[in-house]
Design a protein around this nucleic acid. Structure first.
Lengths: 181, 181
DNA sequence: TTTAACTTTCAATAATTACTGAACGTTTAG
DNA sequence: CTAAACGTTCAGTAATTATTGAAAGTTAAA
């Protein structure tokens, strides 16, 4: 399990980006390693390739499973577990996106819904509630949009994109069509 | 500078979410505090309200300025600096979005562009490059889309949203229109 | 100038987060 | 049943990140 320089480079980069993508360095490296290898890897292979302890691999896999990013495979007559990415690159990105929405947006949306129902007693609270309402509306829009976009295949997205490569044009389209009918 | 329970609750929540939004707890609280207050605040007021040191406020403001999330205001005859959110809620969200794209996507895109130009020497490298190509294409699509969506006003977005509340319908629309012409 | 009112910086330290490795659990082949 | 081969857990420790507060920097009024 020694990586070619090019592949190692990619894996190390994934590690550096890991924390920005929502996990930590080691887990970032694990994702990179699994994605870049055509064949599933055992926990020991991962530990060896990344030079980390066996226990750390176990915890990392657990975390990745909570994100639904890896799946376990078995080879007949072999007791070891083999780990592989749970879907295409596109699938993985969707899963990360979805999970982050749950962690970064949903809790705030819940809080704001409660707060907005309360009555404001002072002018400060009045203003505060208006702001919270704005944030709430923004987050709802973002949530709905991300759900919409996730529903599309990469091909649909790219097709939509090439339509003059501007969403504003889609709006124009819509207006035109609505006028005709 | 003592906060009403309702407002304090919101500020504390922003703190808890802070690290998920790309900063740390204290900076999250600062954003919450500035957004929820109608009037700009001085560094000392922020320190007092959040019960943190004056130096910490200074560093937090610096960080928020690098994200372009706060602006400084002055009151004539007063040497203190007053801090306020740099734009509407929508503007702030856009700035965060943009900054995160720079940190979370751009560096990887740069790396992948380089890697893809290299020639693959082994079958493993061949596969690795195909995967890197997929990731690259995905990130480019995401980048372009986020740029498109950011260009729209909240009103445009919501109008587009209400169009049967499904982007797939827009694609259908497009197809219909193209057939007609 | 000097001094007072402010802001910034940064070394020391506190708080948080990640990692190791040994102990324990589980499964299966012999 | 026993031992070997694997996976998991978690207390202790290492690494990283955030915070304080004292010192230094800046500005402007007197």
């Amino acid at each position: 399990m020694n990586l070619s320089p090019k592949i190692e480079n990619f894996v190390l980069h994934c590690g550096e980006m890991g924390s920005r993508w929502g996990f930590n360095r080691t887990i970032g490296q694990m994702v990179g390693l699994l994605v870049i290898n055509e064949h599933p890897l055992t926990a020991n292979q991962i530990a060896e390739a990344l030079k980390i302890s066996r226990g750390n691999v176990s915890m990392g896999i657990k975390e990745l499973q909570s994100w639904q990013l890896v799946k376990v495979q078995h080879i007949p007559g072999d007791r070891k577990e083999y780990y592989a990415p749970n879907g295409t690159i596109w699938d993985l990105a969707n899963k990360v996106f979805e999970e982050r929405r749950k962690r970064e947006i949903d809790p705030t949306l819940t809080l704001l819904r409660d707060q907005i129902l309360d009555t404001a007693n002072t002018p400060e609270e009045k203003y505060a509630q208006e702001q919270m309402q704005s944030i709430h509306d923004l987050l709802e829009t973002v949530t709905k949009w991300s759900a919409e976009l996730q529903r599309l295949t990469p091909e649909q997205l790219q097709s939509l994109m090439k339509l003059g490569s501007s969403v504003s044009k889609v709006i124009d389209l819509k207006d035109k069509l609505l006028k005709k009918s």
